[in-house]
Amino acid sequence: MKTIIIVIVIALIIIVPVTSTYNSIATLNQKVISSSSNIDTQLQRRSDLIPNLVSTVKGYAAQEKDIFTDVANARAKLSGAQGIQEKATADSELSQSLSRLLVVVERYPDLKSNQNFRDLSVALEGSENRISVARQDYNNAVNAYNTSIVKFPSNIVARIFGFTSKPYYKAAEGASEVPKVDFTK
């Protein structure tokens, strides 16, 4: 009888911490997944605003056809992106295209005074801010998760159950460069 009790106590001493650690890692993993989904939601929100913005600008700047094509292509690339790094690259390309579009706006003072354009600009700026917050939340979640799976003793549980590190959301190469806009074409 004592042997059975000792075996049960030893089993509990092993099972309870392993279960607790597994649950903690699983919770952090779900936070990473949720944060990634929030980035997708905010990117989609911005993507949904873009056709309205482009349509408004087109009426004033029909001769800037290349910029509209670039924005449309970048938007399509973002819609089809898979994985966090591909999304980051496509997001960066779209941001650069939008920057070029907004430079075009500077050439048309009547457009800047158009209420519809101003409303869309405010909505787009809000979307950019939400995307920035979503990226930061994702990277914070990844940091917490990745840290938890390398710390002892949770690293043992992580290895046993196949938890692996997650990638951070990083801007694409060249994303920090200011886009070049050439209106001499």
Rank of each mutant, 00 (worst) to 15 (best):
residue 108 Y to T: 00
residue 147 T to V: 12
residue 55 S to Y: 00
residue 55 S to I: 02
residue 171 A to I: 01
residue 125 E to I: 06
residue 152 F to E: 02
residue 103 V to T: 13
residue 140 N to G: 04
residue 166 K to V: 09
residue 58 K to N: 08
residue 140 N to T: 13
residue 113 S to A: 15
residue 87 K to I: 10
residue 108 Y to N: 03
residue 154 S to A: 09
residue 124 L to Y: 02
residue 39 I to H: 03
residue 166 K to S: 13
residue 64 E to I: 05
residue 75 R to T: 08
residue 79 S to Q: 10
residue 125 E to Y: 01
residue 74 A to T: 06
residue 143 N to M: 12
residue 161 F to C: 04
residue 56 T to A: 05
residue 101 L to P: 08
residue 116 N to T: 14
residue 95 S to M: 06
residue 45 R to C: 09
residue 86 E to T: 14
residue 106 E to A: 13
residue 50 I to L: 10
residue 112 K to Y: 11
residue 93 E to D: 11
residue 94 L to E: 01
residue 89 T to G: 11
residue 33 I to D: 14
residue 153 P to W: 08
residue 97 S to G: 05
residue 144 A to N: 06
residue 168 Y to M: 12
residue 39 I to N: 05
residue 106 E to K: 15
residue 91 D to Q: 09
residue 152 F to P: 04
residue 123 A to C: 06
residue 105 V to N: 06
residue 147 T to H: 03
residue 135 R to A: 06
residue 70 D to R: 03
residue 75 R to H: 08
residue 149 I to T: 01
residue 53 L to I: 14
residue 60 Y to Q: 07
residue 165 S to Q: 15
residue 166 K to F: 10
residue 106 E to Y: 08
residue 140 N to M: 11
residue 89 T to N: 13
residue 79 S to E: 08
residue 168 Y to Q: 14
residue 45 R to I: 11
residue 56 T to W: 05
residue 172 A to R: 00
residue 52 N to W: 03
residue 135 R to D: 07
residue 97 S to V: 01
residue 145 Y to R: 02
residue 82 Q to E: 12
residue 134 A to V: 05
residue 47 S to F: 05
residue 138 Y to L: 09
residue 84 I to G: 06
residue 46 R to S: 02
residue 121 S to M: 15
residue 109 P to R: 02
residue 130 R to M: 13
residue 153 P to Q: 01
residue 69 T to V: 14
residue 146 N to V: 00
residue 118 R to I: 15
residue 152 F to L: 07
residue 108 Y to R: 07
residue 126 G to H: 08
residue 171 A to D: 10
residue 33 I to Q: 12
residue 146 N to H: 02
residue 139 N to Q: 04
residue 59 G to W: 11
residue 125 E to G: 14
residue 132 S to Y: 05
residue 96 Q to Y: 05
residue 164 T to M: 13
residue 132 S to I: 12
residue 106 E to L: 07
residue 171 A to E: 10
residue 175 A to T: 07
residue 56 T to D: 05
residue 93 E to L: 11
residue 43 L to Y: 13
residue 70 D to C: 00
residue 168 Y to S: 10
residue 56 T to Y: 04
residue 143 N to L: 11
residue 105 V to K: 02
residue 105 V to M: 00
residue 44 Q to Y: 06
residue 105 V to F: 08
residue 126 G to W: 04
residue 48 D to Q: 11
residue 47 S to Y: 07
residue 142 V to K: 10
residue 81 A to P: 00
residue 56 T to S: 11
residue 138 Y to S: 07
residue 44 Q to I: 00
residue 132 S to K: 14
residue 141 A to G: 10
residue 48 D to S: 14
residue 74 A to P: 03
residue 180 K to N: 13
residue 34 S to D: 14
residue 81 A to N: 00
residue 79 S to A: 15
residue 78 L to E: 00
residue 159 R to C: 02
residue 93 E to K: 12
residue 66 D to E: 15
residue 107 R to F: 10
residue 74 A to K: 03
residue 144 A to V: 01
residue 96 Q to L: 00
residue 131 I to Y: 01
